[in-house]
């Protein structure tokens, strides 16, 4: 995987914050993710996920990374 542009090692972090346990930043993200869907119908959640993917994709921008992510998401199924 040395040619991979997509980061797949743990990468959640926040500037200026210190996490004493390595699972904490990822768990925090996951909590936010689930919380964002709180109270939504399945259709609303699906739409939220779509918007979220588009926002994050634009933030990443690098098409090589995005192609790899799409491929990994598809093959892991």
């Amino acid at each position: 995987m040395s040619t991979s542009a997509l980061k797949t090692d743990p990468n959640f972090h926040e500037a200026g914050r210190r996490f004493f346990r390595d699972f904490s930043p990822g768990d925090e993200f996951y909590e936010h993710l689930i919380e964002a869907h709180n109270g939504l119908s399945d259709e609303q959640s699906e739409a939220l996920n779509a918007r979220l993917i588009l926002l994050l994709a634009n933030h990443i921008g690098d098409l090589q990374v995005l192609r790899e992510a799409l491929q990994q998401a598809r093959t892991a199924n």
Partner: peptide, 12 residues
């Protein structure tokens, strides 16, 4: 599903 292959997902 991702955890089978990817370290970041194992951590989650």
């Amino acid at each position: 599903a991702l955890a089978k292959q990817h370290l970041f997902a194992r951590k989650l």
